[in-house]
Nucleic acid binder design. Structure first.
Length: 482
DNA sequence: TTTTGAGTTGTTCGA
DNA sequence: GTCGAACAACTCAAA
């Protein structure tokens, strides 16, 4: 009997799993194993909802495997040590796993491959980062050209999706620890984990009755409508493959009733390509986790005021749309993409706090927290990244609130203190006359914060800080020239 | 090698 | 209220 190990990491699915299929192709028996790396758990200690979602996903995977005559072996320890022991115990001849772009993961895999027969497959993205190169062999650093290349490559179709194996033969006597439950209750995470739920959401979004995908171009920025797919946690842990998403989007596009619907599907698919763009950026430029992608904006004179950062974290900045989004993030582990941009712009530009602090806080709370996408988003907002927002683009939290939460429904939901504030003051409650504040039970400075900064003033301060960073640049250029 | 066109997501101001 | 321009150059991708 030949035996191979399927090393599960962030590919918690049986459908369209290249690593699993590679293991099945190599051997008669396959041992699915998840190794909990204590170092990784320590790093994610504060990310309770994400860890809970992961453990719930492992449970779901175990159940699917048991229905196919197999099960998930759970181990805890340094992956290289644990896999070495496992191979000795079972005489397995190969380990198959999906390649990761995260530097920690890539280094871990390189260490494992030094001593063990590790075979890495694609699957994290539709097109592997190594395929996303310009004609001269260099990686793309601008989104649009990369997206053109991505679209020019053959798109995956439904028939290309690898079906879930019907049976997986696994030796019965392999020791396993019990799969732990998460640090919080699963019911506190608004994303039921597992491949079945991921598929259900994908179908509901793309091909259900009156699918939201067909109005996505119109509604995607509306934080009050909540009309987005909510697939990010599932993609984060591979309960759904990017190829499945792309193939299903292609199908939805064919079925689209009109041009507007087609345009919407394309707009949505672009978001998947953004995900691939940032995975490729992290793969080719791992240093972005430490510092600005752009050398010209390394030295922004941050304020890094601890009290201001705390107010942002806790959602008491006095700007309703910012506070609502921060409450949603910390309470549920998820918030709308538009809301993420608004709070990120506020932290970096209005409060002049280093984007890395916001990046870390997001990673501590997001169920979908992914190093590549999160870093890309923060560097984009800070203007330090690839293809980033121009530094003079500073979001106005009042304008953004009025535009993307017109009746204030989102604000009222996540900042209950503001529930009775009239529509015309909902995004700028400090403009309420004292009498109105009394009558609606929302007195500024008592029931709800006054703004911690004046936006117009903060905007000027940010522009000056960025101008200074650029001013300091010639010195750096002189150094380079020598 | 040089040249040319182009680049997610905004805001403010003044006509 | 609406509209276009300015913001500020800079870097990249491709011919």
């Amino acid at each position: 009997m030949t035996t191979a190990v399927w090393w599960v990491r962030r590919d918690l699915r049986l459908t369209d799993n290249q690593a699993l299929c590679a293991a099945l192709a190599r051997a008669e028996q396959v041992i699915p194993v998840f190794v909990l790396d204590p170092a990784l758990l320590a790093e994610n200690e504060a990310a309770e909802k994400r860890v809970t979602f992961l453990f719930g996903g492992l449970q779901a995977l175990d159940e699917s495997l048991r229905a196919r005559g197999s099960r998930l072996v759970f181990r805890r320890g340094d992956p290289r040590d644990e896999l070495t022991v496992l191979l000795t115990e079972t005489s397995a001849e190969a380990i198959c796993a999906e390649a990761d772009v995260w530097p920690y993961g890539a280094q871990r895999d390189a260490r494992v491959a030094e001593e063990l027969p590790l075979h890495l497959t694609g699957g994290l993205t539709v097109h592997p980062p190594e395929a996303m190169l310009k004609a001269d062999g260099a990686p793309y650093v601008v989104f649009t050209p990369l997206s053109r290349k991505w679209k020019a490559l053959t798109p995956p179709e439904p028939r290309d999706i690898l079906p879930a194996p019907e049976r997986i033969a696994t030796p019965p006597d392999v020791a396993s620890l019990p799969i732990p439950t998460g640090p919080t209750l699963l019911s506190e995470v608004p994303f039921p984990p597992g491949e079945v739920e991921a598929r259900r959401r994908l179908d509901a979004f793309l091909v259900g009755a009156d699918p939201p995908a067909y109005r996505y171009a119109e509604t995607r920025d509306r934080v009050d409508l909540d009309d987005t797919s909510h697939l990010s946690p599932y993609l984060r842990f591979g309960m759904l493959s990017a190829r499945q998403v792309a193939a299903m989007a292609g199908l939805a596009r064919e079925l689209a009733p009109d041009e507007e619907a087609r345009r919407s599907v394309d707009t949505w698919l672009n978001e998947l390509i953004w995900r691939e763009f940032y995975q490729a950026i992290l793969h080719h430029f791992p240093y972005v986790l430490e510092r600005s992608f752009r050398s010209s904006l390394q030295a922004i004179p941050w304020e890094n005021d601890a009290a201001a950062f705390a107010a942002w974290c806790e959602g008491r900045t006095g700007y309703p749309i910012v506070d609502a989004a921060m409450h949603q993030l910390t309470q549920t582990g998820w918030t709308h993409n538009r809301a993420r941009m608004i709070v990120a712009s506020f932290l970096v530009k209005d409060l002049l706090v280093d984007w890395r602090q916001g990046e870390r806080f997001f990673m501590q709370h997001l169920v979908d927290g992914d190093p590549a996408a999160n870093n890309g988003g923060w560097q984009w907002t800070a203007g330090t990244g690839t293809d980033a927002a121009p530094y003079f683009r500073v979001f106005n939290p009042v304008t953004q609130g009025k535009r993307y939460d017109p009746q204030g429904a989102y604000v009222r939901r996540w900042v209950p203190e503001l529930a009775s504030v009239p529509d015309r003051f909902i995004h700028e409650p400090w403009k309420m006359p004292a009498q109105t504040q009394q009558s609606v039970g929302c007195v500024l400075g008592q029931n709800y914060s006054n703004p911690i900064v004046d936006h117009a003033w903060a905007r000027e301060r940010a522009l000056a800080a960025y101008a200074k960073a650029k001013q300091d640049l010639p010195i750096e250029q002189d150094v380079k020239r020598e």
